[in-house]
Design a protein around this nucleic acid. Structure first.
Lengths: 223, 223
DNA sequence: TTGTAACGAGATAGAAATACCTGATTATTT
DNA sequence: AAATAATCAGGTATTTCTATCTCGTTACAA
């Protein structure tokens, strides 16, 4: 059993990854045990390794299997491996997910070399490493989340005002007739709107409409 | 301008607060400038202080104005003041809110004295202080959020296994007949279960059932 | 043993939703 | 002026849902 810290690097940007690897191998107390261009490849490599890495540097943004997913898998299947997330500025929105999924550290890609080394040291010896970037990222997370939610789950279709109104009323457990009475229109009209709602949303029935409404913030569940 | 760290303590538990104050005044490098039993009182005191505190120890759980609210106000109106949150175990669910609202450190109330001192030191000199409890709290936050939903809104009625199964399938937009085919029972049977569901939940129709299911964690909306 | 709950299943009806149509009016856009 | 979208509204038919019954079986607890 080596007393050196076994390190792996997972990043799809070859230049960055190899630069990082070169930087790491200059340190006698580190041992590079693996490098991969994405999470999928890395997981395959892991199964063939005799000694698991202690610390894995994982890029947040990768094709195939990104940092978030890899982090989750590692935390579940290889709990002994400590994950340091490498990220570029502006990806704060995923940070709390990463932390919750077991990440031990969050580093901006253009951080100082010394910061990287102390991050690896702390992660290995203390179990985690925090820095001011992490704090700021967390503080910004709320902002990003708010923006994110709108973008990620923005309504994929155009519902007219009337349709939205009626969808809300459907969620309030009103029948078409009750809705028609409240809106002072014929129940056939409501019928038509409801049919359009089903067509537009691609739902099969009321259950689908309710879930759609909740999903896209048209109706809010009071807990 | 004193070179001592100016500290304030806000906690509604008098014994705890005064004990903490006594602990702090034993240190020559600290200067206690204020103490209050809740955020409202503390904010009033602040307006009368000549020198603002550098670091404020804030209890999470207080009447009148709790830690979350006070933290938000301080961060907005007195950005120079650094906030250390004091909490008992189990209040992790609010942590990310606190961090996002500007808290610089999170301490469990039964932490070591040395931990408190290094937290104050780091918060003052570095601007923040993280520890393994913070990390764990963040990791647990997700769990608490999920459990929180279940606990806060625990199902007020007893649904049988069959009823729960059918409720889920209703949320999957299946009709009674489709459900009956999947469960290899008569559609009349599903009918009966559905009627019981409506009776038990007090809902009027499918829309109500879906919302009930989401509300009480029986069905999960994928965003 | 008796009661009770869960589950399954039948009948009967009526209410509601859903699937197709058609068409009119109004407002906005092109 | 013409096209378009939104709203409203009617017809017809089918399917599904909901209410209200009754009943049998099984399992479990008092």
């Amino acid at each position: 059993m080596s007393d050196r810290i076994r390190i792996a690097v997972v990043d799809d940007q070859n230049l960055f990854r190899e630069g990082l690897v070169n930087l790491l191998v200059t340190r006698p107390d580190y041992q590079l045990v693996a490098q991969a261009e994405n999470g999928k490849v890395f997981l395959e490599q892991l199964t063939r390794l005799e000694n698991l890495p202690d610390v894995v540097l994982v890029d947040m943004n990768m094709p195939e299997m990104n940092g978030v997913e890899l982090n989750a898998v590692l935390h579940k299947d290889y709990p002994s491996i400590k994950v340091i997330i490498l990220s570029v500025h502006g990806e704060e929105r995923y940070l709390s997910k990463m932390i919750e999924a077991g990440a031990c550290c969050y580093l901006i890609k253009n951080c100082e070399t010394s910061e990287l080394f102390s991050a690896i040291h702390n992660t290995y010896h203390v179990g985690f490493h925090f820095n001011i970037e992490t704090l700021n990222a967390m503080r910004n997370a709320a902002k990003y989340r708010k923006q994110g939610l709108k973008n990620v789950s923005s309504i994929p279709i155009n519902l007219s005002d009337r349709e939205t109104t009626i969808l809300k009323m459907i969620c309030d457990e009103l029948t078409n007739i009750e809705i028609s009475e409240k809106l002072f229109v014929s129940s056939r009209t409501v019928d038509g709107h409801r049919t359009n709602l089903l067509t537009k949303t691609g739902c099969k029935n009321t259950a689908g409409l309710v879930i759609f409404a909740i999903k896209y913030g048209i109706f809010e569940v009071k807990f």
